[in-house]
Structures are given as C-alpha cells and as structure tokens.
Design a protein around this nucleic acid. Structure first.
Length: 486
RNA sequence: GGCGUCAUGGCCGAGUGGCUAGGCUGGGCUCUGCAAAAGCUCCCACAGCGGUUCGAAUCCGCUUGACGCCUCCA
C-alpha cells in the first residue's frame, strides 16, 4: 500500500497517515445546515472530501464516511431561535418542510457534481436522545451548568485540565480579553461558554422535552454525538470547511473530551474557502453563486453556462487547502483544459500497440500516485495527466510507442485517476444523442471530403465554418477527418 | 483590537534551498489548399527591504498588502 501523508490541522504539519485500525478509515465531515440552497462554496468542501474519500477507496481502504445534515439547533444569534425555525416562520412552512426541500436540493446538486453519497448521513433531529445523554454526562463530569432551562459548557473549568484552543491555537486568556460583550448573554457564566441545550421560548417551533425543560440542542453537540455513535470515541479523520475550525470544531473536541476523556480525532482536515471577487462566498453576504446558475449561465459573474464536470475540474486544479477564486476567466480556461484532457482520454482507445515502449509508463504512473500521496495534491496529479495527454497525442501521431502491456497499464491508470479519483465525467459519451449527431456530422464530413477532392474550397470551408459555429470542431489528420463536440 | 494564513510570469494555479510545474492566452516553426487540431519552440515569474548560506523565490526578521477566524457560515 502507498504511503500517504496528510496535513493535520491539529499539528499544522504533514503526517504519515496511519489508520487506527489497519485497512479501515473512519471519516466524519460536517455537512450543511439545510435552510437554503447550497452555493458553490459549500460544494467545494464536500467535493474536496469526496476526492479524498475516493482516493481512500481506490487505495483499498474500507471507509466509513459520515456526513451529517444539520436540521435543527443551529443558533443564528442570541435570539433563541435557530436557523431552520426562522426560515420556517418566514415562509409559513413546517420546519421539516424546509428541511426536506433543501435536503433534496443538496442531494441533487451533489449528484450532479458526481459526489459519491457518504456511508451514513445522519440528521441532528434524529439524534436528540443521544444529545441529551451527552449533556447529562458532561453535567455529571462537572463541565457544564444549568441556568433557566438552558445548559452551557463551562469553558474555563474545562481549560483548567484540558486545552481549549488546541485546534485553533487560540489562548483562552486572549479570548477573555477580546470577546465582545453582547446583549442577552446574562445566563452564561462566561462569554466563551457555549450552549449545549437552549430553552425554547413559546414562539419557538422546533422543541423537544429534556430533563431541563422544553428546548433544543446546541449546534456543536450534534457532530460530537453522531461521530461518536457511528465512528467511535476515537476515529481517524474529521473534515470540514476552514471556517468551522473555530469555534465549532474546537467545541467538538471539548465536548468529546468532557464525555469520553479522549481526543476524538487523529487527523483534522480543513478545506479552504472558495472566493468570488476576492471575497469568501457566503450565504449571509450574498457574495455567492448557485450551481444551477452555473448550469444555466444565469449569473452576472459568468459569461456562459458551464457543466458540472468543468466546475469539478476547475476545483480539482487547485489544492484543497488553498483559497480558490472563482471567475469567468478562470473557469473558461479550465473548460478548455478539461476538453483537451477528455479528447485525449477518448483517443486512448484508438491507440495501436507496438513491439516496444519508448515511454516509461511505470515511472509516470508512480508520479501520479506520489502527487496524491502528498496530501492529495490534485493540481500536481492533473499536471501529470496532461503529461499523459501529450503521450497519447504523440503515440497517435506515431512519434512514440507502447507495448500492449504498457498501453493497458497506461489506459487503466488514466481511467483510475480521471474517473475514479478526480470523479470527472466524460460529457461526450454521456450524451444520448451523440450517436445520432455523429451520424449527421459524418454525412457532412463526406460532403466536405468530396468538395475538397473537387477543390471546391468555398463549399468545404462553409461546411467547416458552419459546424464550428455550432461548436463542432473538425480536425483534419492523415487518416481522415475527425471531430469533437465542444 | 486579538489570532492565523497567504503574497508566484498576461490570467488561473503547484512546488522546491542549487535542477521543467501544469492549464489558459500571446509569438515562431512543422503539418495543411488555407485553417484548425496535434507536435516542437519562445516569452523563464516568485510583493519590498534586510539577514543566514558557497547558493534563496524557497529558511529567519521587518515593511506593505490581501484574505480568513474572533458572531451563523463549507
């Protein structure tokens, strides 16, 4: 098995990946709060971890991948109302109607981007009982307190024996000095304390009974409870967006320690933000683009529509830990690169084997693995794949050669990384009408060929130019004319 | 204000103490009726100022700038 290194946010270093149990990987990724449509920035994080999931699977690990749906308890501010309920009141819908609508949207969008569904996708509302049990345990361990029907985690007390700030590298002393004083926090002993259970006011729609009265769980708790339930008190990888590092993931660590007295996660992984116009995409600021707007081209930031595969390729061209800026120029360039890659991938089936190989395929293949083994470096992988594109074109031109064994190895490796690991899809052979279209174009190519034999350049050029206007690119080669649909 | 990350060629984006990133764009050549495609090739960058070093864009310090977190956020 390949030696894989992963950048661990807990230590800020690349570390060799060693699973807790040989051959198995437990991975938890914070999912969306389903109160509105997922925007492209949300998608990036899930796509990054999908790539990581895919690579583990390819390496032969048995992976249990858990990604939650937050459908309750996500506090917006100190108004005692959570996001789901606020939206529900606004639209006069049942909370679960909102949850259902945006959960379906989330699944549909991710499917379009060819993300593999996780092994388990638990919901917060489905784990209220477990959350209440966890609160009881934390109370028993003396690290939480009850005030007016709410329960808060006692951060200062926890920090006496443990390190609150171990992940985010914050010092609690600094936090105390710099925390803004907000209204309505009088229930808390300290501003740093966070809610485990919040009392529900009568106007609050989502509510559950508990030993502390009617209320709803705090946001941080669900991930602790669900990751523990499905992956154990300790598991290999916890992922999420960079913006969740503090306070969410810091709180998760504290809660797990308070319950189970062990560090829950071996490798913390954080995907970086997608920006647009240099600023983070986010729902609240409106600086975002929705996937459906990209598929239709209906957004002022883009000049045309782009397919999900092109967007996926665009994102894979950047490292998951780097900020990536979305722009029309950038994605336009990616689209061209994607098309070039896919044309070569299609061409590989036509290559003829030779009696000897002029290219070291084994070395090239290992370079692909080396890239992925270095903290999932997809940009380097793609650079190597373009090296492969060059090989394909040269072999096709008869300038390089591969034996049948090498050719098969080459083809398998290309397919593995392009389809299985990067999760790209080949739009050309995915279209139902491609066969019919191909037949029609073949007729035109025949006509053009006859025109050219008669030196009727006016006609042959007209056929070529009108086809290209429709996005059909002709390529004249020694053995006839081929075409590609752009 | 506090903490942190990053500053790479026309654009997007990797990476490394001395050796090619890659994609897109632009120039040249081969091929072609002319093109396109493909191949070859050119433009060879690393914010600024100091320091360490035989050697730094890569390590250290300072300056400037951008972004992220500190409040819900992938």
């Amino acid at each position: 098995m390949q030696t894989l290194t992963i950048y661990n946010s807990l230590t800020n270093k690349k570390e060799i990946f060693k699973p807790l149990k040989e051959g198995y990987v437990g991975m938890y990724v914070c999912g969306p709060t389903v109160y509105s449509n997922v925007h492209l920035g949300n998608v990036r994080t899930f796509m990054s971890f999908d790539m990581i999931y895919r690579y583990f699977l390819h390496l032969g690990y048995k992976v249990r991948y858990v990604r939650n749906i937050t459908d309750a308890g996500h506090l917006t501010d100190d108004s005692d109302e959570d996001k789901i309920s606020t939206k529900a009141r606004l639209e006069k819908l049942e909370p679960m109607e909102i949850v259902q609508r945006y959960t379906v949207d989330f699944h549909q969008i991710l499917q379009k981007f060819n993300l593999i569904p996780p092994s388990i996708e638990p919901t917060a509302t489905g784990h209220i009982v477990e959350q209440i049990e966890a609160i009881k345990t934390i109370l028993e361990n003396g690290l939480a307190y009850e005030v007016n029907g709410s329960v808060y985690f006692d951060v200062l007390k926890y920090n006496e024996t443990e390190n609150y700030g171990i992940l985010s590298k914050r010092k609690i002393e600094d936090a105390i000095e710099n925390t803004r004083v907000l209204e309505g926090q009088s229930d808390k002993k300290n501003p740093q304390d966070f809610a485990l259970w919040k009392k529900a006011e009568p106007k609050h729609i989502q509510r559950w009974d508990s030993p502390w009265g009617i209320g709803f769980p705090g946001w941080h708790l669900e991930c602790t409870v669900m990751s523990t339930k499905y992956l154990g008190e300790q598991f290999d990888i916890h992922g999420g967006g960079m913006d969740l590092k503090f306070p969410h993931h810091e709180c998760e660590i504290a809660q797990s320690q308070a319950c189970n007295h062990v560090a829950p996660v071996k490798y913390w992984m954080h995907g970086n933000m997608l920006t647009m116009n240099g600023k983070k995409m986010s729902k609240s600021t409106g600086n975002n683009i929705l996937p459906n707007e990209i598929f239709t081209g209906d957004n002022k930031n883009i000049s045309k529509a782009y397919t999900a595969s092109v967007v996926r390729f665009f994102m894979m061209q950047a490292h998951y830990r780097s900020i990536l800026d979305f722009s029309d120029d950038a994605i336009l360039a990616s689209e061209k690169g994607y098309n070039r890659l896919m044309e070569a991938v299609n061409l590989i089936n036509n290559l003829k084997p030779s009696s000897s190989s002029s290219i070291d395929i084994k070395k090239w293949k290992q370079q692909c693995y080396d890239a992925m083994n270095d903290d999932f470096n997809t940009p380097i992988l793609i650079a190597n794949l373009f090296e492969g594109v060059k090989f394909i074109n040269l072999i096709n031109d008869g300038k390089e050669s591969l034996t049948i064994e090498d050719l098969n190895k080459f083809k398998t490796t290309i397919d593995t990384f392009v389809y299985d690991v990067l999760g790209l899809e080949n739009n050309a052979d995915g279209a139902d009408n491609s066969n019919k279209l191909g037949g029609v174009v073949e007729i035109l190519l025949q006509l053009r060929k006859e025109a050219r034999e008669n030196k009727d350049w006016a006609l042959s050029d007209r056929i070529r130019d009108e086809l290209i206007a429709l996005g059909i690119q002709l390529k004249d080669g020694k053995e006839g004319t081929t075409f590609s649909v752009g």
